[in-house]
Simulated scan of single mutants.
Amino acid sequence: MAAQFQGLKFELEYPHSVGVYDQYEDAQKAVDFLADQKFPVENLAIVGTDLKLVERVTGRKNWGSVLTQSVLTGISTGLLVGILVALFSPEGQFLPMLLVALGIAIVLNVIFGAAIYAMSGGRRDFNSVRTTIPSKYEILCEHKHAAQAREKLLGMPGARATLFE
């Protein structure tokens, strides 16, 4: 199991499972318990397993919601671009540059938002948010420290994990 994430190494040498928890907080408490027991926690990883994609429908999509969302996106984009452009504009031009960028961004976002909605042909006429959530949280440990981690976790008060031998 090896992965790189922004310069950090998430690599364990021959990882072994030392516990599986239903809640992230329980896995976190187990690692904290091991840290309190002077266990070398740099040999551990908490891994979310049995992933599920959950999509929460937030509302019906219609022309009003599409145009409102397009205007709001245009405002945020226009403010960002407008402030950047205005910072490098001649003195006294800050407000006019900001307003021009804001207006252009709103108009373009409304045009593109309306065109995309019109071309969708009624497919996916709803707004939603998506997230991926794990069903379980597994603590993995370097093979050379796994037995020690399991032994210490057995002594954890109120331990609610499935421990592996």
Rank of each mutant, 00 (worst) to 15 (best):
D26I: 07
D26M: 04
K29W: 07
D36V: 06
D36K: 06
K38H: 15
K38S: 13
F39D: 14
E42W: 02
N43W: 08
A45M: 09
G48H: 01
L51P: 00
K52C: 06
L53R: 13
L53G: 10
V57Y: 10
G59W: 03
G59I: 06
G59S: 13
R60T: 15
R60A: 12
R60Y: 04
N62C: 10
W63I: 14
G64L: 08
S65T: 15
V66C: 11
T68A: 11
T73I: 12
G74S: 09
G74M: 05
I75K: 06
G78I: 01
L79G: 03
L79R: 02
F94E: 00
F94D: 00
L95C: 02
P96L: 09
M97W: 05
V100W: 07
V100P: 09
L102Q: 03
G103M: 03
I104A: 09
I106H: 11
L108M: 08
A114K: 09
A115R: 13
I116R: 14
Y117P: 04
Y117R: 01
M119Y: 10
M119S: 14
S120M: 03
G121V: 12
G122N: 04
N127D: 14
T132A: 09
K136E: 12
C141G: 13
E142A: 11
H145E: 13
H145I: 05
A149G: 13
R150G: 04
R150A: 14
R150L: 11
E151F: 07
G155F: 08
M156Y: 01
P157D: 08
G158A: 01
T162G: 08
